[in-house]
């Protein structure tokens, strides 16, 4: 992994992202705005499953309202995320927070797909709570990448 990070770091794309000062801050801004859309769209879907939001509307209507926004914002979030990784591969791959975040992200997506297909199943309510917790975890870990040693101490893959 470290070798791959070193190779990526040396590529022309990575060098450009590193040397053009405004790219990383701007891409981070877009990344955070997209997280706002993804997180709150997921929250709306989860709260509807729990009957805490738009209970007067059928689930399908709520899903149709928020799922498309969620998926599109997720796509932009993924693209901007890749740009940030290419720009600083060592920082991302070297952080325990990054890997845990990726795992939580994949689980959150699987949970979302499951909720969309079976919103009335017995597992739907715990899954909805889980989805909210997972996204909070993803957001926390995203910020924690900058503080890997402080947060994970001996479990940090840095140092």
């Amino acid at each position: 992994m470290a070798e791959f990070a070193a190779w990526l770091h040396a590529t022309a794309v990575s060098q450009t992202i590193q040397s053009v000062g405004w790219i990383v801050p701007l891409v981070q801004c877009i990344h955070i705005l997209m997280i706002g859309i993804v997180f709150v769209s997921s929250l709306m879907i989860a709260l509807r499953v729990l009957g805490r939001m738009r209970a007067d509307e059928p689930f399908e209507l709520v899903w149709l309202r928020f799922a498309p926004w969620m998926w599109r914002a997720l796509l932009v979030m993924a693209i901007t995320g890749v740009v940030l990784i290419v720009g600083e591969p060592g920082r991302e791959f070297g952080a325990t927070s990054f890997w845990v975040k990726m795992v939580l992200l994949v689980v959150a997506l699987l949970v979302t797909l499951r909720l969309g297909r079976a919103p009335a199943s017995a597992a739907a309510r715990p899954l909805a709570v889980g989805l909210i917790v997972l996204w909070i975890g993803v957001i926390f870990l995203g910020r924690a990448i900058a503080y890997d040693v402080e947060v994970w101490q001996s479990l940090s893959s840095h140092t």
Partner: peptide, 12 residues
């Protein structure tokens, strides 16, 4: 403010 960041945040 944009140009102001260009010069040291990522300087090696």
């Amino acid at each position: 403010t944009a140009p102001a960041i260009a010069h040291h945040s990522f300087a090696l």
